[in-house]
């Protein structure tokens, strides 16, 4: 059942302990077929402190996971001409292809929606979310919640 996420101002992001050894940046697996959007998404994610593994399409995504064998903390997908259900199914396939990260959260960025959905993040399954972006900060906040830097 769909569930709305609480406003982000209620969440406290833990601060780093200076005595701890430096941690590696969280790694996000991104499926973004659009040539215009891909470099902007990569730039923003890296600017927010994430490592990015970028796949161009479903086949590329599955191949990268099989070959790479690396862990990642979150899967991010752009709806990009498919239905939300189709894109979630692709995300699950990506997640299932890597046994180590079977519980990695998944975010789908919705493509077409009205003002009534703008600004909403809706949980649609276990650790699966659809975000209806009002602006880029909303994505940053959702990532900070699900995959803190």
């Amino acid at each position: 059942m769909a569930q709305f996420i609480e406003p982000f101002s209620h969440f406290v992001i833990p601060t780093k302990n200076i005595n701890q050894p430096p941690m590696r940046s969280p790694r996000i697996f991104v499926l973004e077929p659009d040539n215009d959007v891909r470099p902007l998404l990569k730039h923003n994610l890296e600017n927010w402190g994430y490592q990015v593994i970028m796949a161009l399409d479903e086949a590329d995504a599955l191949q990268r996971i099989r070959e790479g064998g690396e862990r990642f903390g979150l899967i991010l997908l752009n709806q990009n001409g498919r239905s939300i259900d189709e894109i979630i199914a692709i995300g699950r396939q990506i997640r299932q292809s890597t046994e180590l990260d079977s519980r990695a959260p998944m975010i789908v960025m919705a493509e077409r929606y009205g003002v009534e959905l703008e600004g909403q993040n809706i949980q649609v399954g276990e650790n699966e979310y659809v975000t209806y972006l009002e602006d880029g900060q909303q994505l940053r906040n959702l990532l900070a919640l699900l995959c803190p830097v």
Binding site: D34, D36, V37, L40, L41, H43, N44, N47, N78, N80, M109, E111, R112, V115, E118, L133, E134, D135, G136, Q137, L139, R140
Partner: peptide, 25 residues
């Protein structure tokens, strides 16, 4: 003529540089 996410992410870059501000429409 581009996907909405592209505008959102491009606007975010401009906003983080304090060149523009975007607020609901």
């Amino acid at each position: 003529g581009v996907r909405r996410a592209g505008v959102t992410l491009a606007a975010q870059k401009l906003q983080e540089r304090k060149v523009i501000q975007y607020r609901r429409g």
